[in-house]
Nucleic acid binder design. Structure first.
Length: 545
RNA sequence: GGGUCGAUAGCUCAAUCGGUAGAGCAGUUGACUUUUAAUCAAUUGGUUCAGGGUUCGAGUCCCUGUCGGCCUACCA
């Protein structure tokens, strides 16, 4: 509040009224125009005016609302001690109206006031609840002579409950004719602008609640995300997959190559890391006799933040005993197609970045990794080239190549920079080089590649899947090669589990956030995560002032 | 982490060559009993992100910092 910020100011900054007048006057002398700038709306500037100015709070919306709250409390009604029992959500109430039968059905709806059109002795008000917006028509001679002036004092942002009958307005909007109302929460701060909403990305993410109130796209996008997750859960449960929860705090961060977050447990006196994948603990479930398991959970990777990366993100991982990467291929195709039908109501979406239409119902291309590389480089013998020749060719194609890279890294740079971004339609890229993943089975015919696929849609990797490695000795060798001699990074307990026997299995992961980017047409991962990670604010002032 | 662009009223945005910050919405007051970004009249509201510098004079130019966008790097 204002007086608070004044006390925060240093003595030197505080300027008494008379001194301020003097400063003003001096300022006017510089440009020669005197009276008009002194006080725009009051040429007869006097001491009494300056005093009344300090009690005028009409410019301070927070103060105005606090005063209204105090007036309500003084009159014996405290909005923070009131409640209502809604009978309908907004959408239900609208659906309940029977065409041609106005004022036949009585409902109680509740929500936040988001718009108001005041016409003197009646007004239209719209309230927002989880299901959307419903309009209220508040008429002085319906709601009551005494109540109406109090209703008019409500502010945008207040929560109210309203009971009344449903009718259709002249312009065709189903509306509640309010017979009574209850203020159930006073909003002490104003809402952002009704038409343009909130645009500052910083504020949208830090104060997501405001974004959700005023920006319908944000609201719809996050509802869609919820439906996507719900659909996936149902899809898997219908196929006998069991949802389980595995530890976030782990001794060794396995299942992916990423820097973890470090943390510490006080009572155990032990250091832990936050998980970077779900993989190794879900596979232990296969060892434990659960044939079909999945988890939808948060992973944490201590890396840079970008349009496609948030430090914490949600993964689905699915494991199916007696399956392989080919059964996973069928499953993910079925999952995404039904997802489009059920959640989006269409098999076609527009890829936001390219404008190209993606059709999930059409046949999905399947192509080996090596074929794509040969195609892109125009060199059928690419994989037989020397490292020097690969380097030269890659640079020719516009890739940067670091001196200490292995050959597969040069090749993969071509894939990730030149090929993947251009795979817009759903594409299964199969049989990746064995160096790219230590957890999958080698292909029987070509042991330089893996029995895996990566599903690419819209230029993004959406789902990798493997025929899971279950040979404990091969797995140990792969881990040790990857750890590069750092034994503490090898999950020994997992290898012991494999020695007890893990059935052959197909496994798959889906980055839920990236899937949501794709399906909602979002520009950034921050748009599909409710509270994306931001740098903590240095000053605590602004939000609470 | 590096590069680059940005931060002005509660919100959305203006401000010419460096000349002393203005509009819409919201708020306040008034009119209007079926409105749709309702309309009409009047009106309040500013530490121009913070701190320094140049200048008679800085929202504007320079430096430093904070936070954010985009690109990039680490990473699937």
């Amino acid at each position: 509040m204002r007086p608070q910020s004044w006390t925060d100011m240093s003595e030197g900054c505080f300027m008494p009224e008379e001194a301020r007048c003097r400063a003003w006057s001096e300022a006017q002398l510089w440009n020669g125009s005197v009276v008009l700038h002194l006080r725009r709306h009051d040429p007869f500037f006097t001491v009494t005016d300056s005093m009344s100015d300090e009690t005028d709070i009409s410019h301070d919306q927070h103060a105005v609302r606090r005063q209204k709250l105090e007036e309500l409390r003084a009159a014996g009604s405290d909005p923070f001690r009131a409640n209502v029992k809604p009978t309908h959500f907004s959408a239900e109430a609208i659906a309940a109206h029977v065409e041609g039968e106005d004022n036949a059905i009585t409902v109680t709806v509740a929500g936040r006031i988001v718009t108001r059109r005041d016409m003197g002795k009646s007004q239209f008000v719209k309230i927002l609840d989880q299901e959307g917006i419903i309009q209220l028509y508040v008429k002085k001679d319906v709601i009551g002579e005494e109540v109406y002036p109090i209703f008019k004092k409500l502010d945008l942002g207040d929560f109210i409950g309203v009971t009344g009958t449903l009718f259709k307005t002249r312009t065709g909007e189903i509306t509640v004719r309010a017979e009574s109302y209850t203020l159930v929460t006073k909003a002490l701060r104003p809402l952002p602008e009704k038409f343009h909403g909130l645009t500052d990305p910083d504020q949208r993410f830090r104060q997501r609640y405001l974004d959700l109130i005023v920006n319908k796209e944000s609201r719809d996008r996050l509802i869609t995300r919820s439906k996507i997750v719900s659909h996936i859960r149902r899809f898997l449960e219908d196929r006998n997959f069991l949802e389980v929860e595995t530890p976030v705090l782990q001794g060794v961060a396995g299942g992916a190559a990423a820097r973890p977050f470090d943390t510490h447990h006080n009572a155990l006196g032990a250091d832990f890391v936050l998980r970077i994948s779900l993989e190794l603990y879900l596979k232990r479930m296969l060892v434990g006799g659960f044939d079909r398991v999945f988890e939808i959970g948060r992973n944490f990777r201590n890396e840079g933040i970008s349009r496609r990366h948030n430090p914490e993100f949600t993964m689905l991982e699915v494991y199916e005993a007696y399956g392989d990467y080919r059964t996973m291929m069928e499953m993910v195709q079925g999952m995404l197609r039904t997802l489009c039908d059920d959640v989006l109501g269409t098999s076609k979406i527009t890829h936001a970045a390219s404008g190209e239409e993606i059709d999930f119902a059409a046949d999905w291309r399947e192509v080996p990794y090596k074929d794509l590389i040969r195609e892109k480089t125009g060199d059928a013998g690419w994989f037989d080239l020397s490292k020097e020749d690969k380097t030269a060719k890659a640079k020719e194609l516009g890739c940067k190549v670091e001196a200490d890279w292995e050959e597969f890294e040069i090749t993969n740079e071509i894939f990730s920079k030149l090929i993947e971004p251009n795979l817009i339609q759903p594409t299964f890229v199969t049989h990746l080089p064995k160096e790219l993943c230590p957890l999958a089975k080698l292909n029987l015919d070509d042991p330089s590649v893996l029995d895996v696929f990566e599903l690419i849609i819209g230029g993004m990797e959406i789902a990798p899947a493997y025929s899971e490695q279950n040979d404990p000795d091969v797995q140990r060798a792969m881990f040790e090669a990857q750890a590069g001699g750092e034994q503490q990074n090898v999950d020994q307990d997992f290898l012991t589990a494999l020695e007890h026997g893990m059935p052959p299995a197909g496994g798959m992961g889906i980055g839920i956030d990236r899937l949501c980017i794709l399906l909602t047409g979002a520009e950034s991962i921050r748009d599909v995560i409710l509270y994306p990670q931001l740098r903590p604010e240095a000053t605590s002032g602004k939000a609470e002032s």
